[in-house]
Design a protein around this nucleic acid. Structure first.
Length: 682
DNA sequence: CACCCTCGAGTTCC
DNA sequence: CTCGAGGGTG
């Protein structure tokens, strides 16, 4: 075999392996073997540079950087689609097109995903990929051929399989380039680690990646592509139905979506579309909707246009999960530790079915890093579909009127100067008498994980503090019926169902009941910085009561496993303060005096079946609450933590899990349900 | 010292 | 759920 024939053969082999790997997702050779073939090809090309053609796989690595992108005119307009919001809107479209042409009533429909990516136009001459462009304004785009060559799922030569159909002389197709969500997250994690600014979303990142002047940079990003339309064709015949067109493109070796379906009935198409609204998380890309197309392309063409949108298809949009809105103001919340947290006040906007007006900004560095300014249009997302947060400003929407945010110098509640500890991100109000802190402190004290005093919500706490009946947490145990009645009648009540007297009685009863909480709970309830639920339990198991604990030095405390220098210092410092000493005295006098020590803390174990195993619970379990499951696991010697890691033994999976499920899958953590958990014990 | 894991703190809406 | 920091380990 001559070297030239061998070279061509090698090229074909690489194209096929590449196709199997990136398009079919079913490789037949190892990565190592593939690299060997590619290296051999490179060597031959080094000796015979004149043999290299536009379809050489070696060109995927990225060519020389360009100065700018050249404008190209598309052979036919690259159109956008009309939108439908919801099923009724889609039915409205169907009825309208039926009235224009009664053939639509008997038409078939193809449903495909609408990927939130970047539209690209690919040109093939005699089966060779010769040019790729952005959509641009629909008529003129930019030539990004070198960058698109680095996208592995774009075939450089068609048909990829020699047995495939012979393509027309000139074939121009349209597809959507995107960055898989996983890759986007990976990239952002890496950038965050390197201290670089993170990207807003996969769409922007994909667009940015394809418009980078250095193709080698683009090559380092994982981008994918799905094709769905033939824009232009010369010297050949192409299918006249969308369904067959997809099949045809697939046969040529192009990546096409695997969730497209054809329906005889429009209602079935709508139902299928709606099913993906619920399941969109299963897709590896962001989908902003589904496209419903009339299968018969000639019929679709005959229907013409409304404005610039062709009538033959409609984009069925999912409710947005990511939305832009105006940042009206930045307010500051004071936490119980005095920590100041910036909070975005937003122009009300709907995200995933709820109206969002507030969103956390995490910390002040976040505002500076992302250069978020008051008056900016900002991108807002509900994290894990629940908690809204500001991803960043939309820089293109700046008018110049936005105001830079000034870091706070004084506490918004008490006006005292704020402090920022060395190397710490957070700002603190260090005023021990700060009223906002007291409210938060009391709230924490009565919360479920702490003393668990039911019937003491924010409003009552605020009123009790306002009326001066509660000046510290110990005052709770000195409250009289009249004090509570006063607070209850002062606060605006939403429901008039329960008489104030009854509320007061219930509250007094739950205050009384809280006196029997174990020492660990009481220590956690005190709200010492660094001593949360877990550390408090560690401390409680080593000391008989608060008196003994309060006398322990930082050095002694550090001996306890899990307690380091910083927490030890913080605990010792808390107990040394006269105000706190007084609180302890008052608690003791009121009879809030649980006993600790190792024996008191060691709960009776049902078994040791789960000894040494770590569990993470996510989602809603069928019969147990999270606390039930936690108690069950702990009573059998197991440990429950909050975040999935390599050390996690089992993920206990419930209904509607969050990101933990994904993480557990990627780390290969065993996943079980409530039933399986019970069976583990036997 | 660099890494991984764990813990704490604060958070939105219904 | 998120981020930051503390604690422990190789």
């Amino acid at each position: 075999m001559s070297t030239k024939t061998h070279y061509e053969d090698l090229k074909q082999q690489i194209h096929e392996h590449n196709y199997r790997y990136h398009v079919l997702d079913a490789p037949i050779v190892s990565d190592l073997e593939f690299d060997r073939l590619l290296n051999e090809l490179k060597q031959i090309e080094a000796e015979h540079p004149d043999w290299i053609t536009a379809d050489s796989p070696t060109l995927r690595a990225g060519a020389k950087p360009a100065d700018r992108f050249i404008k190209v005119t598309h052979p036919a307009p690259i159109l956008s689609l009309g939108n439908a919001f919801g099923a009724d809107d889609a039915r409205g479209w169907f009825e309208r097109v039926c009235r224009i042409d009664d053939r639509v009533e008997r038409a078939r429909f193809v449903v495909e995903p609408k990927i939130d990516g970047l539209s690209v136009v690919l040109h093939y001459h005699d089966g060779i990929f010769v040019q790729g462009a952005t959509r641009g304004n629909g008529e003129i785009g930019e030539d990004i051929t070198a960058n698109l060559r680095t996208v592995k799922s774009i075939p450089l030569r068609i048909p990829v399989d020699e047995k495939g159909p012979k393509p027309p002389k000139v074939l121009v197709i349209r597809g959507e380039a995107y960055m898989p969500i996983k890759e986007f997250e990976k990239l952002n994690r890496k950038r965050a680690e390197e201290g670089k600014p993170t990207y807003l979303n996969p769409r922007n990142t994909a667009a940015g990646s394809l418009r980078m002047l250095d193709p080698a940079e683009t090559a380092s990003r994982v981008l994918k592509l799905l094709v769905y339309q033939i824009v232009h064709c010369e010297g050949g015949k192409i299918p006249t139905s969308q369904w067959e067109l997809l099949e045809y493109l697939k046969a040529l070796g192009f990546p096409i979506t695997d969730i497209a379906r054809r329906f005889d009935d429009f209602e079935d198409a709508v139902a299928y579309t709606e099913s993906w609204d619920k399941n969109r998380d299963e897709l590896e890309y962001e989908a902003d909707g589904m496209v419903i197309k009339i299968d018969d392309l000639n019929l679709a063409k005959d229907l013409g246009f409304v404005g610039k949108d062709p009538r033959g298809a409609i984009a069925f949009k999912f409710p947005a999960r990511e939305v832009t809105t105006k940042l009206l103001d930045i307010k500051i919340n004071v936490g119980r530790t005095g920590m100041l947290i910036p909070n975005a006040v937003l122009e009300p906007v709907e995200i995933g079915g709820v109206i969002v007006m507030r969103a956390t900004l995490h910390n002040f560095d976040y505002i500076v890093q992302k250069d978020i300014r008051i008056g900016d249009r900002v991108l807002v997302k509900r994290a894990g579909e629940v908690i809204p947060y500001v991803i960043g400003p939309v820089l293109g929407a700046r008018t110049g009127k936005e105001k830079k945010y000034k870091l706070p110098t004084n506490c918004p509640s008490c006006g005292q100067p704020v402090e920022r500890l060395d190397d710490e991100v957070a700002f603190y109000c260090v005023n021990a008498a700060c009223p906002a802190q007291l409210v938060r402190n009391v709230e924490h004290f009565v919360s479920r994980g702490a003393m668990d005093i039911v019937g003491m919500g924010t409003r009552i706490v605020e009123k009790l503090i306002e009326t001066g009946k509660v000046k510290d947490i110990a005052d709770i145990y000195y409250l009289k019926r009249a004090d509570i009645l006063e607070a209850v009648t002062k606060k605006e009540r939403k429901t008039e169902k329960e008489p104030p007297g009854k509320i007061a009685e219930n509250l007094l009863a739950s205050i009384e009941a809280s006196k029997s909480r174990p020492l660990a709970r009481l220590v956690a309830a005190l709200g010492i910085r660094g001593a949360g639920e877990v550390s408090a339990a560690d401390l409680a198991s080593h000391f008989a009561d608060l008196d003994v604990l309060s006398k322990a030095s930082a050095e002694t405390l550090q001996q306890i496993a899990g307690i380091g220098p910083s927490v030890a210092e913080s605990v010792a410092e808390w107990f040394s303060r006269p105000v706190n000493k007084n609180v302890i005295k008052k608690l003791k006098a009121a009879g809030v005096w649980p006993q600790g020590g190792s024996s008191a803390n060691a709960k009776s174990r049902a078994s040791n079946a789960l000894e040494g195993k770590t569990f993470v619970i996510t989602g809603t379990l069928p019969t147990w609450s999270r606390d039930d499951a936690k108690e069950f696991i702990e009573s059998h010697g197991g440990k429950v933590t909050d975040s999935v890691s390599k050390k996690t033994s089992y993920l206990v999976l419930g209904e509607a899990p969050g990101s933990k499920y994904e993480k557990a899958k990627s780390l290969g953590v065993k996943i079980i349900g409530e039933e399986a958990l019970k069976k583990l014990v036997g």
